[in-house]
Amino acid sequence: MKSLAEALSPEEIDIGRCSLRATIEGSFFPDWEFETLIGANHAEVREVYAAWPRRTVGQEAFRSIVFNSMANLIGYPHGKEEELIAYIPRGRAAIVELLDRLTTLGV
């Protein structure tokens, strides 16, 4: 089985990296709600971001952090579309496509 780095295109890797960066650095999620939404604290998300797409945490934690970050960038009512576009120029559509691809890969 290919590694995630081998299975994803450079654009998909970039979208994943930018999504994780937006989750950590952006103002999308209030601090008091961050762990509930993402299923991990800032440090754990930073660890996944720093190694993306290489997995440095357990499979379940990795999947939770990646999927929850992206799903909440898409679905959480943050109302910060311009900020999202600054992190991910193709916006929500690019995140949805990557989530679909990750699901297909069985991440």
Score class of each variant (00 low, 15 high):
Glu60Lys: 15
Gly26Cys: 12
Glu47Phe: 01
Ala51Val: 06
Glu83Trp: 01
Gly39Gln: 06
Leu102Val: 10
Arg46Leu: 09
Glu6Ser: 13
Glu82Trp: 00
Phe62Asn: 03
Val45Phe: 05
Leu99Ala: 06
Asn41Glu: 11
Gly79Phe: 08
Met1Trp: 07
Glu33Trp: 12
Glu35Ile: 03
Asp100Asn: 14
Arg101Gly: 05
Asn41Thr: 08
Asn72Tyr: 02
Val66Glu: 03
Val57Cys: 06
Ile15Gly: 04
Tyr49Gly: 00
Gly106Pro: 09
Val45Asn: 04
Ser3Ile: 06
Gly91Phe: 04
Ser69Asp: 02
Val57Pro: 04
Thr103Gln: 14
Ala61Met: 13
Ile15Arg: 05
Arg92Gly: 00
Ile24His: 04
Ala50Asp: 15
Arg101Asn: 11
Pro10Lys: 09
Asp14Arg: 15
Leu20Gln: 07
Leu102Thr: 04
Glu47Trp: 01
Ala40Pro: 09
Trp52Gly: 02
Ala94Pro: 00
Ser9Lys: 13
Glu11Ser: 14
Lys2Arg: 15
Val45Lys: 04
Ser64His: 03
Ala40Cys: 08
Gln59Glu: 12
Leu73Arg: 02
Thr23Ala: 11
Glu81Pro: 01
Asn68Arg: 13
Met1Asn: 09
Lys2Ser: 09
Gly16Pro: 05
Val66Thr: 12
Phe62Ile: 01
Asn41Ile: 04
Leu102Asp: 12
Ile38Thr: 07
Asp100Ala: 14
Asn41Tyr: 11
Arg101Phe: 09
Trp52Asp: 01
Ser9Trp: 09
Phe62Ser: 00
Leu37Thr: 03
Glu33Asp: 13
Glu25Thr: 05
Pro89Leu: 08
Glu12Cys: 08
Glu97Ser: 13
Glu83Pro: 00
Ser27Met: 06
Ala86Cys: 02
Ala50Gln: 15
Thr104Cys: 01
Thr23Lys: 06
Arg17Thr: 13
Glu47Arg: 15
Ala51His: 15
Ser27Asp: 14
Glu83Asp: 10
Ala61Gln: 12
Val96Ser: 08
Arg21Asp: 09
Arg54Thr: 12
Asp100Glu: 14
Thr56Trp: 01
Glu60Leu: 11
Glu35Trp: 02
Thr23Glu: 05
Val107Tyr: 10
Ile24Val: 15
Ala86Asp: 15
Glu35Ser: 14
Leu98Met: 06
Ala5Trp: 05
Arg55Cys: 10
Leu102Ile: 11
Glu97Arg: 12
Thr36Cys: 08
Thr36Ile: 10
Val57Leu: 06
Ser69Trp: 01
Thr103Pro: 00
Glu97Ile: 02
Thr23Gly: 06
Arg90Phe: 02
Val96Thr: 14
Arg90Thr: 02
Tyr87Asn: 00
Ser69Gln: 04
Leu99Met: 15
Asn41Gly: 12
Tyr49Glu: 13
Val96Arg: 14
Ile85Asp: 02
Gly106Leu: 10
Val57Ile: 12
Leu20Cys: 09
Arg46Met: 09
Gly75Tyr: 00
Gly16Thr: 08
Asp100Thr: 12
Thr23Ile: 07
Ile24Gly: 01
Asn41Gln: 08
Leu73Trp: 03
Glu44Val: 06
Ala7Val: 06
Ala50Glu: 15
Ala71Ser: 13
Thr103Asp: 07
Glu47Ser: 13
Gln59Arg: 14
Leu8Lys: 07
Ala5Arg: 14
Gly16Phe: 08
Pro53Gly: 05
Thr103Leu: 11
Asn72Thr: 05
Asp100His: 12
Glu35Pro: 06
Ile74His: 01
